[in-house]
Design a protein around this nucleic acid. Structure first.
Lengths: 339, 339
DNA sequence: CCTTCGATCCGAAACGTTTCCGTGGCAGGA
DNA sequence: TCCTGCCACGGAAACGTTTCGGATCGAAGG
């Protein structure tokens, strides 16, 4: 594959390969004249370092991995990953690092692939997303000595550093807002139960109701998709007693919910208020525009990549907390109907 | 990094490293008894092959690259890439290949990085998306001998194979549909001019108008974003003579257009029909649901990955044509207003 | 003039794997 | 009994780079 090697450059320049290596890598021990000459020859010969040879001896892969424990279609469905990857890439590119992307069908598959990545020297570090309630990956990366950055997790050890954003504060504000508007029956469409943040959001909803002395509204289990929002609307709005407001676990669910409400002849926000979570772009372009909590996946990606590169370089790191997610009030929420 | 090497396994098993290698790789020349014993020992010692050593000698990186010539935020904005990557990953995973993802700010940067990937042995092949009018990448991959799969391009040579989907047929049907509904002034919000498909879509619009004997409607240059759709609506709907239908270059633009139309008190589809292009999920959940042409980025990804792996393996390949994009009629189109 | 030292460069080992070729043993045939 | 041939395995080179210790040479200091 590789036409011109460091050996060819050395022969052409009449020096030893060690001299070429030193000259090109910028290390000391070679005269400026030689360095310039070698540089010129390497350039003119079109020499490109073989990452294969280089990483074999330098023990660095010059790549980090993102192993997503979901079906690959999540990229389309969940807007978090697109933004996160965008943020990650912005940092990696500058550092000359590449991002290795892979999807896993099951937790089992993740636990099989991480050692292959780590021990096989494929990547120098990994990002861990979608923290689960009982997450075996944390122990694994410690055992492997694999630098890892985890998103929104309280756990922290020598080879794992969290990068987090407080998203629940915004959700509490959202609940307060609904309650202040006068809503008394506030339902919830949750996310998949295996994810930590699904449970957290549900808890915030529950606690806010309790704190306001309100009875617990109806709860429907969703799956973070628009489809799930449609199904939830069918379940909640077919009966006699609707909630006057529904807090959805993410924007896609909320958009599906609003769509199906319209289908059933129920107006948002006149008949029912609906809120989302994530703050995707399209939320401001649908009708009615979506009240939501805006998270910052791109910022999380940037900071996560910065921290991971520090860890790979062997420098000490501290957990990072980015700006809290913000409540965005739009038109999908209003005072409850008179009736 | 790698604790236990093939050497350790050989010592433990009392055989030569070549025997271990042969036994584990499944090649002939090793007795079944020895093979089983070596396998067992390697397993129990937790041996994982070093991709560094392996790829150095086998001259394969076990990874392919996707070098996207756009800012990283495109992942959020353009739904094509999410679906495409999902499709690619589904195939790569089965083959044990990984996907290397990188974004480039400029065409220049792409032309610098491709040789580093190819000659550096970082990847075994690449996907080329966002075909441009004059695309220097085609010549480059040929010179590098780098297997490449390009999406929706007519070009084809020994190390470049196209995987395509006819999307323009659906767009022609869409134009016919609008004209049959009775529309006579049909505008267009285009995409960025540097992309080949932007121009192609514009041409289809223009030719359909001409074929129907209609005057060319107003044209606004968009940028594939919702923001662009908002701006286009401002431009087209502020004047005295609206078009009765507007064909947008993609769904996001259409959604932005519809949103801003509503803002201006103009109803879709009663006052004006609006169409999109791409067929994103959310198109069926907004109000009114979006008439669009549904493309298949995920299928393209699957087929592209299959073809690329064939090329990497050195087998001959043929250009692939997937099912044409389909016109999806929803509620954002209707007969033009009486006036 | 001899010693010492720093600067510069060379040679060789090492990284972990695959692959080619050689060697030994054993069985079968003459 | 000896030769032939095959099968199983061992030895060693090769991949392309980095790194480390040593060699050479000129200059500076005594």
């Amino acid at each position: 594959m590789n036409r011109v090697t460091i050996f060819d450059v050395a022969r052409e320049a009449g020096v030893a390969i060690s001299t070429v290596s030193t000259a090109l890598s910028g290390g000391p021990g070679v005269s400026d004249a030689t360095r310039a000459r070698v540089r010129g020859i390497a350039q003119s010969m079109g020499w490109v370092p073989s990452m294969r040879g280089r990483s074999l001896v330098s023990k660095r892969a010059w790549a980090v991995g993102l192993l997503i424990q979901r079906p690959a279609t999540v990229l389309e469905a969940d807007p978090f990953f697109s933004g996160f990857i965008a943020g990650v890439e912005a940092v990696l590119d500058e550092a000359g690092y590449a991002l290795l992307l892979q999807f896993a069908d099951s937790a089992q598959q993740v636990l099989e692939r991480l050692p292959r990545w780590a021990l096989g020297g494929v990547v120098d570090g990994v990002f861990l997303t979608d923290v689960e309630v009982e997450d075996a990956r944390y122990e694994l990366v410690r055992d492997l000595g694999l630098p890892a950055v985890a998103i929104n997790t309280p756990v922290w050890h020598e080879s794992l550093c969290p990068v987090s954003q407080d998203t629940l504060g915004g959700l509490r504000e959202l609940m307060d807002h609904l309650i202040r508007l006068g809503h008394r029956r506030i339902g919830h469409v949750s996310g998949p139960p295996q994810f930590l943040h699904s449970g957290q959001r549900e808890t915030v909803w529950r606690e806010a109701l309790a704190a306001a002395g309100l009875a617990e509204g109806p709860l429907v289990r969703g799956d973070f998709t628009s489809e799930g929002g449609v199904r939830a609307a069918d379940l909640l709005l077919r009966g006699p007693e609707w909630p006057t407001a529904v807090v959805c676990a993410n924007d896609l669910t909320a958009i599906g919910f609003i769509s199906q409400a319209a289908e059933l002849g129920i107006s948002v926000p006149d008949d029912i208020s609906v809120t989302g979570f994530d703050g995707i772009q399209l939320g401001s372009y649908i009708t009615p525009s979506l009240t939501t909590v805006q998270t910052s996946p791109q910022v999380l990606g940037r900071r996560a990549a910065e921290v991971l590169l520090e860890m790979v370089a062997g420098r000490p790191v501290q957990p990072v907390e980015v700006e809290p997610a913000q409540l965005i009030l739009r038109r999908s929420t209003a005072v409850p109907p008179r009736s």
